[in-house]
Computed example of a mutant assay.
Amino acid sequence: MKATIDWTGGVSFRATSGTGHSVQIDGPPDHGGENKGPRPMELLLMGLGGCSSFDVMSILQKSRQDVTDCHAELSAERADAVPAVFTRIHLHFIVTGRNLKENLVKRAVALSAEKYCSASIMLEKAGVEITHDYEIREAD
């Protein structure tokens, strides 16, 4: 896996993945940025959410669950000192569908956390406390 980061002025950068997708990264105005993109640590948090959501949906689809929506809300705490690393992250999944089986949703979230989500497992090995929970909603 590869990526490139190109400075675009001030404290703004364009990050491009090895597959050719790019995202603008920028800092807040009080650090010389123009708020034109997420901060690097926000991208890391979003990457974790995307990785885990990918796993949860894949597992639920393989379990033949009729999922109509999967929404993940992430909240993170960071150290007060530099480096301001993540100390705690919580993922809350809201899974919507028809006749979803709670044991399968619970299993999908657990398997992502414990076995499949590379980002989550890597951050935990670095000392970040990561917790997960879920709620199930019936589709209209």
Results as ranks from 00 to 15, higher is better:
55 D>Q: 03
35 N>F: 12
49 G>T: 04
20 G>H: 06
51 C>H: 06
21 H>E: 06
28 P>W: 11
45 L>M: 08
33 G>P: 02
48 L>W: 05
34 E>I: 12
27 G>L: 03
19 T>P: 00
44 L>Q: 05
47 G>S: 13
50 G>F: 06
41 M>D: 03
32 G>R: 08
28 P>A: 14
44 L>K: 11
45 L>D: 00
37 G>W: 00
48 L>R: 04
22 S>L: 05
52 S>Q: 11
38 P>D: 13
51 C>V: 04
23 V>R: 01
50 G>C: 10
48 L>E: 09
47 G>H: 05
29 P>F: 05
26 D>W: 00
36 K>R: 15
49 G>K: 02
21 H>Y: 12
27 G>V: 00
36 K>E: 12
29 P>E: 05
35 N>C: 03
38 P>M: 15
37 G>T: 04
27 G>D: 08
46 M>E: 11
54 F>Y: 15
49 G>Q: 04
40 P>W: 05
47 G>Y: 09
46 M>K: 11
52 S>K: 08
44 L>M: 14
19 T>M: 11
36 K>W: 07
20 G>D: 00
29 P>W: 05
30 D>F: 13
46 M>T: 14
43 L>A: 07
48 L>M: 12
20 G>R: 06
43 L>N: 10
47 G>W: 05
34 E>W: 06
53 S>D: 11
32 G>A: 07
28 P>L: 13
34 E>N: 15
51 C>W: 07
42 E>F: 08
50 G>K: 03
43 L>S: 08
53 S>G: 15
22 S>K: 01
46 M>H: 08
41 M>E: 04
43 L>W: 05
36 K>G: 10
20 G>V: 02
19 T>A: 13
27 G>R: 00
34 E>S: 14
54 F>M: 15
51 C>E: 11
27 G>K: 01
29 P>H: 06
41 M>S: 09
22 S>I: 03
38 P>T: 14
52 S>F: 02
22 S>D: 13
45 L>N: 00
44 L>E: 09
36 K>A: 15
45 L>S: 06
37 G>R: 01
54 F>L: 15
40 P>A: 02
21 H>P: 03
52 S>E: 09
23 V>P: 09
49 G>S: 13
28 P>S: 12
29 P>M: 09
20 G>F: 00
43 L>D: 02
21 H>C: 01
48 L>A: 13
29 P>S: 07
39 R>I: 04
44 L>H: 05
28 P>C: 08
19 T>R: 13
49 G>D: 02
39 R>A: 10
26 D>F: 00
26 D>R: 01
